[in-house]
Design a protein around this nucleic acid. Structure first.
Lengths: 117, 117
DNA sequence: ATAAGTTACAACCAAATGGTTGTAGATATG
DNA sequence: CATATCTACAACCATTTGGTTGTAACTTAT
């Protein structure tokens, strides 16, 4: 186990893959300002409705967004919990991959460096 | 500009794409314990040398690792700076996409307000 | 009831991805 | 020198990805 985290490897694949596309990152930004239907989103891009629908689906499979039914439309909003866990995950990777001991150790080191300057 | 960050969008694509594969994340872990040649790495996986070479190449294009020539071999080590910036980037996205206003953000905002008066 | 709006999904296509094998060029070692 | 090791890279292949159009179903409005 490289990183002790609640994520499954499969889920991590989906997460980073979802974030690796500009349009999808942009959608994340748009829905963060309020729920939007898939049509609302599609109108803001120069690609087909189906293309945006697929991007939303990729984000949904990564649990980065959720859809809510409202009449004939599905309202898309983002999922702060997954974002929080993703940020934590990458911070964990950073710590492990760079042999950083832990947050407290780092703060103490930086404290030390400041004093020595 | 969704996130004010030193990364270009293209670079962000490469970054998250590089991280979206288990083998590549595993390589990041292995090289974090010390430099390894590509052959060293390849021996630890049940896939061809060329496959590992390609994975290393993807990590290199994302600036997550660097290669150093040592005789007939190339020693791979990871790039802590990119990892640090990647973690920051995702933290920025989290903050922006979830409208979180943290202590640092508030301090900077207040700083700005003071200057503008 | 009809029409318009919204979504889901299938079928298709070109390009990218993740793997393979094979070949060739350096570099080290007997 | 001859041979083994290490890397680069091309060619190939199957699958996935990111896009398209088209069709069907459901919901709302006229």
């Amino acid at each position: 186990m490289p990183v002790k985290n609640e994520f499954e490897e499969e889920q991590i694949d989906l997460l980073f893959h979802a974030l690796s596309d500009r349009t999808r990152r942009d959608i994340m930004g748009k829905v963060s300002e309020g729920e939007q239907s898939i049509s609302d989103l599609a109108r803001q891009y120069e690609m087909s409705f189906a293309a945006i629908q697929k991007h939303v689906s990729v984000l949904e499979k990564a649990s980065l967004i959720t859809k809510r039914v409202e009449g004939r439309q599905k309202l898309v909003s983002n999922n702060p919990e997954t974002l929080r866990r993703a940020t934590e995950l990458l911070a964990d990777y950073e710590r492990i991959w760079t042999h950083r001991i832990d947050a407290i150790g780092r703060i103490l080191d930086e404290e030390q460096e400041r004093k020595e300057q």
